[in-house]
Design a protein around this nucleic acid. Structure first.
Lengths: 209, 209
DNA sequence: GTCTATAACGAGATAGAC
DNA sequence: GTCTATCTCGTTATAGAC
């Protein structure tokens, strides 16, 4: 909390509201698919005012990536702190993606990675920092699971982590194209199945009671 | 071959050359990241001439997806005809993606799937047809491998197929962001490893001679 | 089929009043 | 901080000559 204790949180400052709208627009339409006019219409603020807060689209774009990375980092720290079991940590990680897709959005950085070639350099660098952090966090969880024997890993944890990120990013992309979030869930389950310990061969019968 | 036998192939017609350039531009910069001016500069033909061949950007975009799907279909048929082993079919499939990435491009339909919300309706429909065809083909290969015992499948083939497509699309996205094609290769190997029969536990020693 | 010329619009961005 | 007004440029697209 950045506001004094005992007081209600202040309404989000204009800059934050601009970022909120811009984030949604990038995640749904892409960096090259939205304009200041779109934000202006959504917030009912003139384009000139937007430029007061973010002088150029490049700076707005960079702010978006940095803020998104920050929020993700916080979410990962929260998981790390509150979820002890590595298997559950992975499920919580998958859920972060599912929450984004539920809003019919892509991962901000996945979307921007597609448009990579057209982005200002600082944004490109920030993108890769995001993916690096994700893979490091995942690799840590996987290593922990291997040591404790709760996860079943064939190869190096870094490659498992890369597969996870790739599969989840790709699954969001395709699932959203179909407007079918079950597609995402199916892929996520399947990729986790390759890491979670071999299933205990459930009998056909329902395991009721 | 659509030209008479015994003759050299004619130089590509203008429309095809336009599609070639536009395809590259979409795969690298996205549908919203290129303009008729870019094609005009690359081919040294005026924008007005481009409009003679493709009156609107929407029609150009649709032609791109249909042609890409056609080419992919041909490639899949060629694999089906010339490669007997399902395991090798999967490797050939992965290689199709690798060939695209080597040119620093994304799958055309993967890129467009990201921009989905901003695309004309006919393009969206054509996109999903592409993913459907891919998954059907893969599911067929996987089913074949399961029957012949050359592949090792845990769940339904459709879900395996969806994981494959998602992982490959996502791996291209991330690998290209890093400019590191080895990242793609690593993910591809790892996802295949979950399908190919369990490795024969190679000894540490090099299996030389 | 390709060109010149131009229309019509939307983009990112700035100046300066309030 | 937000506004009106404006600038400049790039965008898709068309008319009509060659």
């Amino acid at each position: 909390m950045r506001h004094p204790p005992g007081m209600r949180a202040p309404p989000p400052a204009t800059a934050e509201r601009i970022l909120d709208v811009a984030e949604r627009l990038v995640q749904t339409q892409g960096y090259n698919g939205f304009s200041y006019a779109d934000i202006s219409a959504a917030l009912r603020i003139t384009k000139a005012s937007l430029h007061y807060h973010f002088p150029t689209k490049a700076k707005l774009g960079l702010s978006l990536v940095l803020r998104y990375h920050d929020a993700f980092r916080s979410a990962l720290e929260a998981i790390q702190k509150s979820v002890p079991d590595p298997r559950q940590k992975l499920r919580a990680y998958v859920q972060l993606y599912a929450d984004v897709l539920r809003k019919d959005r892509l991962c901000l950085c996945g979307m921007l990675a597609a448009e990579q070639a057209t982005l200002p350099k600082p944004m490109k660098a920030a993108l890769n920092a995001f993916f690096d952090a994700n893979e490091r966090w995942l690799a840590g969880v996987l290593e922990e699971g291997r040591r404790s024997g709760t996860l079943h890993l064939e190869g190096p944890v870094v490659e498992e982590a890369q597969l996870l990120v790739a599969a989840l990013e790709g699954a969001m992309l395709v699932a959203r194209s179909y407007g079918d979030s079950k597609r995402f869930a199916a892929v996520a389950e399947r990729v986790l199945a390759g890491i979670l310990p071999p299933a205990p061969r459930l009998p056909k019968r329902v395991r009721q009671a």
